[in-house]
Amino acid sequence: MKQDALTPRPALGKPTIVPSPEGHSGPGFMTVSLEKAVGLARKNSIWPLPFATSCCGIEFMATMGANYDLARFGMERLSFSPRQSDLLMVMGTIAKKMAPILRDVYTQMAEPKWVLSVGACASSGGIFDTYSVLQGIDRVIPVDVYVPGCPPRPEQIIDGILKIQELVGQEGMRRRYSKEYEELLRKYKID
């Protein structure tokens, strides 16, 4: 069917709206636990910091492109400054020379922050079991979600993002102040 540029195209589907959390609502008001409301807001407006070093970075570019369109998940804005970002996406090989820089970037991010490790290299060193490659970024910073693949397909990266969103949505307000979290950071010598 040939279409005139001016005639509006039929909508492909209804836009999806994030369902509101469970709570009591009536005319003009809604009560819901603060944790859930904050979780909902946080998870749908994550600002990711792409830390792309190699091959996986190219797949990330494809994920950001029009075909896979990461912006659908509330990620329109990439934050290239660590100070304003919530999610550190580590994509690609991290060499030992790079490891201190990665740690710096992580410590510069403000709480709460999450880390997504994309690809075999970032997760475990991958095929590069060599003297110069860090064998997994979890040796220097804590990681929330690992995405396997060398490189992972854009669908897998999106899946990893959705897993992160799940984590973000469910996170308790007090987790970052808990003993366990402090213990975790101490283990990585981050204070």
């Binding site: 070093t53 190699s54 690609g92 991290i94 060499a95 020379k97 590069f128 060599t130 003297y131 110069s132």
Partner: peptide, 21 residues
Amino acid sequence: GYIHRAFEKLAERRPFYQITT
């Protein structure tokens, strides 16, 4: 050298087909 992965060293330990990767 921030993503130096030692390809040339790795290649000395890999059979020819594994170097393609």
